[in-house]
């Protein structure tokens, strides 16, 4: 897994993905290609399947994949359990990060990092190196060091939880980051900090998929591609001007044009 990724390499390929939850059709033939160096935004109205897409790609078992194929760097993603997807370099930033009192934030981060490194055949980081790395990234996220010794997301405000997600992403340096409505519930200052964190991860050998309802995050993290997700499939793709148009005109016109 140490082979180099170059800008433009295909990282994620989703073909005709169909997924159900409790028998209900949520994703209905979704296609998506994400290449190294790109930032994609997936936008869509509530209930369009945005969160389902993130969760299915990250390996949540509550969803049943009933059709289609997903490859990540050429490997069958759907055949891997969630923990292996993470170690292969896929990161999901949760819309609602769960609180896990009793599991220490910093140790989770260290265990997560070492699980990935071990998977790639790299030596584990020791406590000293690790702390230096985390402190560095916390500064970027403007987080207080007190967060380190708390339980995972324990007693964090909504904004703090989102920052913590981006902190984890910054430490784990995934090849592909899926950020599920990371912008929701953030005030403008927190939004800038989060955007800053995402931008710092932009590199030729990585990609970011932002799943979002609003365009405002895209003012700070400028996407290469914008997709409209509705009815469980991508009905339109374009460049960043599509996001601005959606902001102005809503989603109905896209749906009407797609139906026509």
């Amino acid at each position: 897994m140490t082979d180099t990724i170059r800008r433009g390499d295909l990282l994620l390929q989703v073909e005709g993905l169909r997924a159900n939850v409790e028998g209900k059709k949520i994703l209905d033939g979704l296609d998506l290609e994400v290449r190294a160096g790109e930032v994609h935004a997936i936008m869509g109205p509530n209930g369009s399947g945005k969160s389902t897409l993130s969760q299915v790609l990250a390996g949540r078992e509550d969803y049943t994949v009933v059709g289609g194929r997903v490859t990540f760097r050429g490997r069958d993603l759907l055949a891997m359990p969630a923990e292996e997807r993470a170690r292969e370099g896929l990161f999901l930033g949760f819309q609602y990060p769960v609180e896990i009192p009793g599991v220490n934030n910093v140790y989770l981060l260290k265990a997560a990092l070492n699980a990935s490194r071990k998977h790639r055949g790299q030596p584990e980081v020791d406590a000293f190196e690790f702390l230096a790395l985390v402190r560095d990234k916390m500064k970027l996220m403007q987080m207080d060091e007190a967060f380190l010794n708390r339980g995972v997301n324990e007693g964090f405000s909504g904004g703090e939880k989102k920052r913590n997600e981006i902190l984890q992403m910054a430490v784990l340096e995934p090849t592909l980051a899926l950020l599920d409505e990371t912008d929701s519930g953030l005030d403008i200052d927190a939004l800038k900090v989060v955007a800053n964190g995402v931008n710092s991860l932009r590199r030729d050998d990585r990609a970011v998929v932002l799943v979002t309802h609003y365009q405002r995050l895209l003012d700070h993290v400028v996407p290469d591609r914008v997709h409209v997700l509705a009815g469980g499939r991508i009905i339109r793709s374009g460049d960043r001007t599509l996001a601005l148009e959606l902001e102005k005109r809503g989603y109905d016109w896209v749906r009407q044009e797609a139906a026509a």
Binding site: A86, V103, L108
Partner: peptide
Amino acid sequence: FYLLSRGID
């Protein structure tokens, strides 16, 4: 799922 998604087995 949160822990699995972070690569913890």
